[in-house]
Design a protein around this nucleic acid. Structure first.
Length: 465
RNA sequence: GGCCCCGUAGUCUAGCGGCCUAGGACAUUAGCUUCUCAUGCUAAAGACACGAGUCCGAAUCUCGUCGGGGUCACCA
């Protein structure tokens, strides 16, 4: 049985797109193997918790279509799925390690630790806890018993090498002399990430730990923990981080990173996932466009690339445009209607779809292009006041058109251009300006048909009067 | 700085020792279609970081250099 998980920390206001990429792989791997995909909230840092962050994250994950089999919301056999509700568990396991001699209490003050680190750095040494408290554990345990002094539990890093096989990076060897005696249980009784993940991944029977590359350097600590408990290791897979164009880790300083930002502009979840799937992986047949279902079918962890890709919103938009073009008209109509909170006539939207389907890349492109269908232009991108007299005549001619159909409108306009001895392109540009107020618009004849004769004449009148 | 990871065009990638005159996609440029803008089609330009080595043969294997990134907390 394959069980994967993502473990977001509600320290941001929404899901990071990089987390969606990680979630996608976890989800796909679980589904491919008929296993479960779990969402666990790692809210152990009370100082950094963002109000409403967790709820937003859960919402966005669902919105994007990565539905968890087990989560704080739907529950599951290993509940609770929120670390802040599992404090007793971590405490118990931390104490177990102390009893086994694999971990120890430390009562050093933050001030001492800071000072110690500064001294080590001044001597160009790797900052590491000096194990002062380890020298007299009995006394410290005695002190703790007598009065409830602040203390943490630290992992005792054994000497030697940690060797493990990463599913995407191959064999990794790290000498433990480079690893600090990591705090496992903080003085506030909350676990650190390291204790939390290991205990929960074990208890929740996670088989594949697929997470960002940033965790690679701390994986040896986790392995030491698994070994200290005597637990079997899961498969580790560290996937590359998404990057900014300057190659640094994708960050909100330099790029929009919140998933809702993209969704809210009318990027489809399907397109987002499709694009993200292509970050560090490619379809065996070289396809660019494929469904989640197909992805699950052909995806394999072993095909994940090691290099860290740059997240390119331009290609994302292009891909979303492909999704729009391939979408059925009625479906697109509904999407647009709902995207604009049902503010605009669905019938009218429907008529405009064939004109704009190839012209928009995301739903938010619709209104700038089509607003003139819903209301007459209030200003014109090019000033037409000098042409008032001319349009007076145009209006008179257009009034004669009986059958207001795009073909006929088109013919009439061409004839008018000839009659007034104006170049077609110029005439259409001017007409476009009168009708839409813009230099760029959907095809004019069809647009005029949709608007109707009365409205078009009214718009010319509005200019000339 | 220590440790770890990575290195094919501006970007995403294919490539697992000969099929590579290095393929595809986005972006770019040009042309065709055209009432604008798009779409569509066609074409162009553009990459194996560098240096040694192994081999009959290297983008592919080894080593070194350089470059980029990640990480070194009572944050995740």
């Amino acid at each position: 049985m394959v069980r994967t998980r993502i473990a977001p920390s509600p320290t941001g206001k929404d899901v990071h797109v990089g987390s969606v990429a990680t979630a996608l792989i976890n989800y796909a791997w679980a589904k491919k193997n008929k296993g479960q995909f779990i969402v666990r909230i790692e809210d152990t840092d009370r100082t950094r918790i963002v109000e409403g962050g967790e709820a937003q994250m859960l919402k966005t994950l669902k919105r994007v279509g990565l539905v968890a089999d087990e989560s704080p919301e739907v529950g599951g056999p290993y509940a609770p799925y929120r670390q802040s509700e599992r404090l007793d568990i971590y405490k118990k396991y931390a104490e177990e390690l102390v009893t086994k001699g694999k971990a120890y209490y430390c009562i050093c003050t933050p001030e001492r630790l800071t000072k110690m680190r500064e001294e080590q750095q001044a001597k160009k040494q790797v900052p590491k806890y000096d194990r002062l408290c380890l020298t007299d554990q009995k006394k410290i345990i005695q002190q703790i018993k007598e009065k409830d002094i602040h203390r943490v539990v630290r992992l005792l890093i054994p000497e030697g090498q940690i060797k493990f096989n990463d599913a995407v990076r191959g064999e990794i060897i790290i000498d433990t002399k480079n690893i600090d005696d990591q705090v496992l249980l903080k003085s506030d009784g909350f676990p650190t990430y390291h204790l939390g993940v290991v205990v929960d991944d074990y208890l929740m029977k996670i088989t594949h730990v697929i997470r960002g590359e940033e965790w690679l350097p701390s994986t040896p600590k986790h392995i030491i923990l698994y070994q200290a408990f005597g637990w079997e290791l899961p498969v580790f897979a560290h996937i590359s981080l998404l990057r900014n164009p300057d190659k640094s880790k994708l960050s909100k300083r330099k790029n929009p990173v919140w998933t809702s930002y993209y969704l809210d502009q009318g990027i489809f979840p399907e397109a987002l996932l499709n694009y993200l799937a292509l970050m560090g992986w490619s379809h065996p047949e070289g396809k660019d466009i494929f469904s989640l279902e197909e992805y699950i079918k052909v995806f394999d962890i072993k095909d994940i690339q090691k290099t860290a890709p740059v997240f390119d919103p331009v290609k994302l938009e292009w891909m979303n445009g492909v999704y729009i073009r391939e979408m059925k008209n009625e479906e697109l109509r509904i999407k647009i209607y709902e995207f604009y909170q049902k503010k605009y006539s669905e019938d009218l939207i429907e008529k405009t779809i064939p004109l704009i389907k190839e012209r928009i890349k995301k739903l938010s492109d619709y209104l700038p292009l089509c607003e003139f269908f819903f209301k007459a232009p209030e200003k014109y991108e090019v000033d037409l006041t000098s042409k008032k007299d001319f349009f007076e005549k145009v209006k008179a001619e257009l009034e004669k058109v009986i059958d207001w159909k795009s073909m006929i409108i088109g013919d009439s306009l061409v004839n008018l251009a000839k009659k007034f001895e104006i170049k077609n392109s110029q005439f259409f540009a001017d007409m476009r300006m009168v009708i839409t107020g813009k230099k760029i618009s959907p095809p004019l004849n069809e647009s005029m048909e949709i608007l109707g004769k009365e409205e078009c004449l009214k718009r010319i009148y509005q200019l000339t009067s």
